[in-house]
């Protein structure tokens, strides 16, 4: 079923994930005041980046689809949105789990948390519209438009929530991270992004196969009608 390239990709992703887990739990030190819960951080941050990558991929492919009408771009957009939503869900669940220990509360009105929440809501709506609308041209256009509106909204939401309030630990920008932790973060990034790429490519493959089947269905129906017509009126010449 799977082509060689994609299965190699999957093997690589699995190895990357396993070794990242090894580095995170075996090599990186336990954080002094938060304890072991800080180990969420490595996959949390990488997944957030992967989620936004998925959303931007979806937006780019959607613009291309609206301009050129290429169905393959639509398949790519759908893959980006679905995998993005997957990682975004993880970020939204692991964030509060970490915050419970680190900040003493499940949820704070923290800018990046709120931004991710809004982005997730928009793309959840995207996925829901996809499934309600079915495989029609109008649904494809609606979803492309939603992706564009949603991604265009992200900078504005970011600006508004930043201006409103802010207290996320700015770990990466201030260099407040030890060398071992940095190695673990790099490993987690590599793992999450190879997992992301594998899932997106797999989803694209499935989507392309579905497109192909649909095209063949139309072909078969047209041919069937053709034969029926000829059988009913033998005088009709072959076109």
């Amino acid at each position: 079923m799977m082509s060689d390239k994609l299965s190699w990709m999957a093997v690589f992703a699995s190895l990357a994930v396993l070794s990242a887990l090894g580095v995170v739990f075996g090599y990186a030190p336990v954080e002094a005041s938060m304890g072991i819960v800080q180990k969420i951080f490595y996959f949390h941050v990488s997944s957030a980046l992967a989620a936004y990558t998925g959303f931007f991929l979806c937006c780019g492919a959607s613009i291309y689809y609206l301009l050129k009408g290429d169905r393959r771009a639509d398949v790519v957009a759908r893959a980006g949105a679905e995998v993005g939503v997957l990682f975004c869900t993880f970020v939204l669940i692991s964030g509060p789990l970490w915050a419970r220990k680190a900040w003493g509360t499940w949820w704070t009105g923290e800018p990046r948390l709120m931004l991710t929440m809004v982005a997730a809501l928009i793309f959840y709506a995207y996925v829901v519209v996809r499934s309600i609308g079915g495989r029609t041209e109008i649904t494809r256009r609606i979803c492309a438009a939603l992706a564009i509106l949603g991604v265009a909204d992200i900078p504005l939401v970011h600006f508004a929530v930043q201006k409103w309030r802010g207290n996320h630990p700015r770990v990466l920008r201030n260099g407040g991270i030890s060398d071992e932790m940095e190695v673990a973060l790099t490993a987690a990034m590599l793992a999450v992004f190879s997992l992301f790429a594998t899932l997106v490519l797999l989803r694209i493959r499935v989507g392309m196969a579905e497109e192909k089947v649909e095209r063949l269905h139309r072909l078969a129906t047209a041919r069937g009608n053709d034969i029926e017509d000829r059988r009913r009126s033998p005088l009709l010449e072959n076109p």
Partner: peptide, 16 residues
């Protein structure tokens, strides 16, 4: 679906 999509998109507007 209209409110489900409209409200998240309008978050910056509502905050501002």
């Amino acid at each position: 679906i209209v409110p489900v999509v409209l409200f998240p998109l309008c978050v910056p507007l509502l905050i501002a």
